[in-house]
Structures are given as structure tokens and as C-alpha cells.
Write a protein that binds this DNA or RNA. Structure first.
Lengths: 217, 217
DNA sequence: CCATCTCCTGACCAATCGGTCAGAAGTTTT
DNA sequence: AAAACTTCTGACCGATTGGTCAGGAGATGG
């Protein structure tokens, strides 16, 4: 019955860790909400509530909504760019294209929120990303198109339009994140499972390789 | 110098026409703004300003923002569904698929705003469209998948996964509206022109037909 | 020409928005 | 244990939001 008067808070938290943990937590919650409701549809109050913090605390870590959104975006973009530079001239398109498609669909599966925020940004004219699209992504795009042209000149694939092939690869893989809701409705599921992602990847690989006249092993 | 005191407003407008014209005008402006800024990012004041009307007048025609958005959406969906029921068993996939792709890309070109609103809606979980997706669109989806299976059984095309082929067709054609901004940046243009849309359609037709093992004429 | 209906709008409203701030509470340094 | 610093938060702010409303202006039918 007697309540021990022992100190109730022996936790002794660490300042640096507190900052790290709270920032991370807020970013994670914000990513999900921005993904579900868009920039304008997401309020700081909602983020705070979902994170279990007072609104003023969220604004203590990220001084403005804009700054928070930009941090979310830059996190996303760094993940993105990292795993895209993989297609090179010395590879055979058979392997390079398969790897690209598989990796891109895996990204859609593992980072659906990030993927959707990215898509929504572009859908609305890329107000925050335009600069990086015009520099970093464009450079990478042109490099990859050049790789395609190289493969074509080696007759490893049909003479197809490299730019539009890139658009097709991008959109059809991206769709497994962006339109997941629609796809799962069409398949009468609550959400896509691993097999669905695999079947999607298989179909795209097959379609692209055969469609580009790349002889498979 | 003398100002003629002739009646300044001889126009004598017609009530029914006034209602029609204003509603249409508001819907048109709203479609553009919803497309550019999303639902939450678009304010009634902004729509009113852009339409050259007082805010209260917009609300006179459409009692709530929600109702206006739903009207925009239903306009879009009716255009959508109309031109999608085209693939039938008695056609050869060579023609049916080509027609579908060409038509879908033309829609992306001619109704980019509608297309983007639709995409944003799905991206954010289809809060307003879910019911119609679950009934109308799903039914049509399954019908078309059945047509694919029929073509496969007739050995007019390879035994590919019909559902994922539909996803691929949908996303890669849709992209010519949704990601137009990104595409035009990649191609160093201010916007895509007719030739770009044609090249995109050509590539997709070629990729899909050859990829599905459909022998072209 | 008058009664009636529709169209139109400035003024107004409560609610919510992003953001500020003073000061309490907790942690680290001395 | 005291000083210095960071974390935390309730109360508050002006601006904007979607929406209401009373009443004026214009159109219509008899």
C-alpha cells in the first residue's frame, strides 16, 4: 500500500539524443501526413497531434512549415538519387534494365510515402524541386539516355527513343507507389503484397526487354 | 464632348443562359486551380478572383467548396469512363491496344488538368472517388482483363499478366499529363509539343505490342 | 406596370491557420 | 550547488479560411 517515494524520473535523458529522436520522429510523422494530405492539406497541429507533442514543440524544432516540408523533401531526394546511377555502358541492357526496374519497384514498396510526395510535387509543377530537377536529375537523365544510345549502336537493343523509354520506365515503376490504392482496389485487396510487386516487376522486365528487342539469356 | 445618355446596358441577358455560362466558367477556372494547387491549396477566394467574380457569387452557384470539387470530379470521371470501353474480344490486340494507347495519350494532352486532378485524388487515397473506383472502374477493369485472357487463349498474344499489363498501360499513358512538367524539363522545353506526344505513343505501342508478342501487320 | 422570382454582393462570422513569446522545467557545465 | 544553456509549452496573435445573410439589382410572367 505504501507508495515508495523513490525518485520517479531516474531516466536522465541526454540532450543530443533528445534532439535527434524528436526531430526524426516529427519528420517521420510529417512524411506520412504530407503524403496522405499534401502540403496544404497538412497542418502543423495535425503533425503535432499525431506525434504526441504540442504544436509549439514541433515549431521549436522546425521553425516553419515550409522548412519542415523542405527537410522531408530533401530526405526523399537523397534516397532517390542515390540508387539511380546504376545503368552504365559496360553493362548489358538485359541486366541493367532488369536491375533498374526491380530496384525502382522495391523503392515504391519500401518508401511509398516518399514516392507519393515526390509525385505530388511534380504533379503540381514542382515548386520546391524544380531547381534540382533542372540540374541533378536532368544530368542523370541525359547520361542514362546516352547509355541507351550506346547500347543501340552496339545493336544490343532496337533503335527506340531513349527519352521516352526513360519516361515509360519511370512512370510504370513509380505507379506501384502512387497508384497503390487504385491497384489494390482493382485486385480486391486491402493492400498490395510482395507477390503483387514481384509480378509487376516480372511483367515490366519482360515487356521492356522483349519490347526493346533485347535477347534474354 | 457631350456624352450620349443612351442606355448603357442594352444587353438584356437571359437568366437560364446566365446560370449556364457562369457555372461553366467557374467550373473551368476551378478545374485549373484544383489541378495546379490541389484541393486544400485552392481557396474559394482564389477561384472567385480568377473568374472575375465576388466570392459570394461563386458560393451562390456552388454552395460549398466540397460540392464544387465534386462537380469538377464528376465532370472528369464522365469524360474518362466514356472512352475506355473500347477494347473488345472481337478486335485484334494489335489494333485495340494501339487505339487505347493513342486515345489515352491524346486525353492526357487535351485534358491535362482533369488528368492531374484524377491522379492527385488517387495519390491521396481517393477519398472522393473510392466508391466509383470500387464499382464502375473495377467492373470495367475486370472486363478488359477478361478480354486480354481471351486474346491470350487465342494465342494472339503471349501469356502475360493481364492485371499488371493494365496497370502499365494506365500509368505510362497517364504520365504524359501528370509528369508533363518533369518531362518537359528533361527535354529542355517549356512544354511538350505534338511531336513529343506522338513519339511517346509510338514508343509505347511498339513496346507493348512487341513486348506482348503480338505480331504487327 | 407590378408582383415574383433569380441573380448578385458587401459586410460579417466563427474557426482555424502558421507563427510568436515569455517563462517553466530539465540538462549540462563550472 | 550555482550558473548557463537547451528543451518544452500554454497563451496569445493577426491573417485567412469556408460559409452566412440581408437586401439591392435585374429578369420574367401576367
Amino acid at each position: 500500500m505504501s507508495v515508495k517515494k523513490r525518485s520517479v524520473k531516474p531516466v536522465r535523458r541526454n540532450l543530443a539524443k533528445i534532439r535527434q529522436d524528436n526531430s526524426d520522429h516529427i519528420l517521420k510523422v510529417a512524411e506520412r501526413l504530407f503524403s496522405d494530405n499534401g502540403y496544404s492539406g497538412t497542418t502543423i497541429s495535425a503533425i503535432a497531434k499525431e506525434a504526441g507533442l504540442p504544436k509549439a514543440n514541433v515549431l521549436y524544432y522546425f521553425h516553419t512549415k515550409d522548412a519542415l516540408y523542405k527537410r522531408v523533401l530533401s530526405n526523399i531526394l537523397s534516397i532517390w538519387m542515390l540508387s539511380m546511377n546504376d545503368m552504365t555502358e559496360d553493362q548489358h541492357p538485359r541486366d541493367a534494365l532488369r536491375n533498374y526496374i526491380v530496384k525502382k519497384i522495391r523503392q515504391s514498396k519500401e518508401h511509398p510515402h516518399a514516392s507519393r510526395i515526390f509525385a505530388a510535387e511534380i504533379l503540381h509543377g514542382a515548386p520546391y524541386l524544380r531547381e534540382q530537377l533542372e540540374t541533378d536529375l536532368k544530368e542523370q537523365f541525359q547520361t542514362t539516355c546516352q547509355v541507351f544510345r550506346h547500347w543501340i549502336s552496339k545493336q544490343w537493343m532496337d533503335p527506340i527513343n531513349p527519352e521516352h523509354l526513360m519516361f515509360m520506365l519511370w512512370s510504370s515503376t513509380q505507379a506501384y507507389a502512387d497508384f497503390q490504392v487504385q491497384s489494390s482496389i482493382m485486385l480486391s485487396k486491402t493492400e498490395l503484397d510482395d507477390q503483387d510487386f514481384n509480378e509487376g516487376a516480372d511483367l515490366l522486365v519482360r515487356l521492356v526487354l522483349k519490347g526493346c528487342g533485347i535477347n534474354q539469356v
